[in-house]
Design a protein around this nucleic acid. Structure first.
Length: 278
DNA sequence: AATCGTTCCTGATAGC
DNA sequence: TGCTATCAGGAACGAT
């Protein structure tokens, strides 16, 4: 599941595209484009230069010389892989059944969008409109404005909600998904079901530190490949090796030996150690 | 007006 | 063995 660390890893891998030019686009799943037709998209991006590759929340953003930006969202199973051998001809019919979109490049073959479950999306918007508030997204947890007091304010405004639900709410904090929500809460020893308003100052400070620490550690380990996620070169990350609770229900807590438990919150699996987390 | 449930999809796995 | 049912979860959307 690509979350902030996975998207950042892909963005880092794709920095090499800055300065290259887009020469074409191919898709076999136009639903991912929303209302825009594949031919309209191709016409708009053809022969533009890629100025920058960056992350906005869980979006991968390619800023183009046309003053427009491509917004790619991997959702559940999307993979964005640079294929230096990628050709203009779609010869992948049988070779790669999950390859659904290709951005052809002048100097580097093609940028391939693979997507098993086809939830991924592609948008093209004016670069000036690519800001968090236009997408109803909350602050980025790695941005400078994500301070302890900003986090505290969110918890005060949503005091009756379970803390885990707030971490997953993209309109409040954007970038944390289900894997890191559980891992972050374990790191700060807070029970996922604890109400936001019941956290004391020390717990809020600890949680703020854990959010940044876990996300940064996951970036340094190039993401979590628990199932489909791959980096910009098609390789696995390694954070799955250091998961403390996610998908470890029934196994011993790596800290205290108590059996890790699983519950469901807002329809999402939640993992925690009943002894370490209060 | 917030909150809940459903939907989009396919593959892995469980259970019979 | 082979079938069907269930689950995985990001985000948009409809329903309550």
């Amino acid at each position: 599941m690509p979350e902030l660390p996975e998207v950042q890893t892909v963005v880092n891998d794709l920095q090499i595209l800055a300065g290259d030019h887009l020469t074409g686009f191919w898709t076999n799943w136009k639903r991912a484009l929303g209302s825009m037709s594949p031919s309209a998209l191709e016409k708009k991006i053809k022969d533009t230069k890629i100025i920058a590759v960056r992350r906005m929340s869980k979006f991968i953003v390619l800023d183009l010389s046309s003053k427009e930006s491509l917004l790619l969202h991997l959702r559940m199973t999307g993979k964005l892989i640079l294929n230096d051998q990628g050709s203009m001809i779609n010869d992948q019919k049988n070779a790669n059944k999950h390859l659904h979109h290709k951005f052809f490049l002048k100097n580097r073959g093609a940028l391939e969008f693979h997507d098993i479950r086809k939830f991924g999306t592609i948008k093209l918007l004016p670069t000036s409109e690519v800001v968090l508030k236009n997408f109803n997204l909350g602050m980025d947890p790695l941005a400078k404005n994500f301070t302890t007091s900003a986090l505290s304010k969110i918890f005060t405004e949503h005091r009756n909600k379970p803390i885990k639900n707030l971490l997953l709410d993209q309109t409040l904090i954007s970038g944390i998904g289900n894997i890191y929500a559980s891992e972050i809460l374990f790191d700060s020893k807070i029970k996922p079901s604890k109400k936001a308003g019941d956290l004391n100052v020390g717990e809020i400070k600890s949680l703020h530190e854990s959010i940044k620490k876990i996300l940064q550690k996951a970036i340094s380990l190039r993401g979590t490949s628990v199932s489909d996620y791959r980096d910009g070169n098609g390789k696995k990350g390694s954070f799955q090796k250091v998961l403390m609770v996610y998908k470890r229900n029934g196994q011993k807590c790596k800290v205290c030996g108590t059996i890790v438990e699983k519950s469901v919150m807002s329809g999402r699996s939640t993992f925690y150690c009943p002894a370490c987390q209060n």
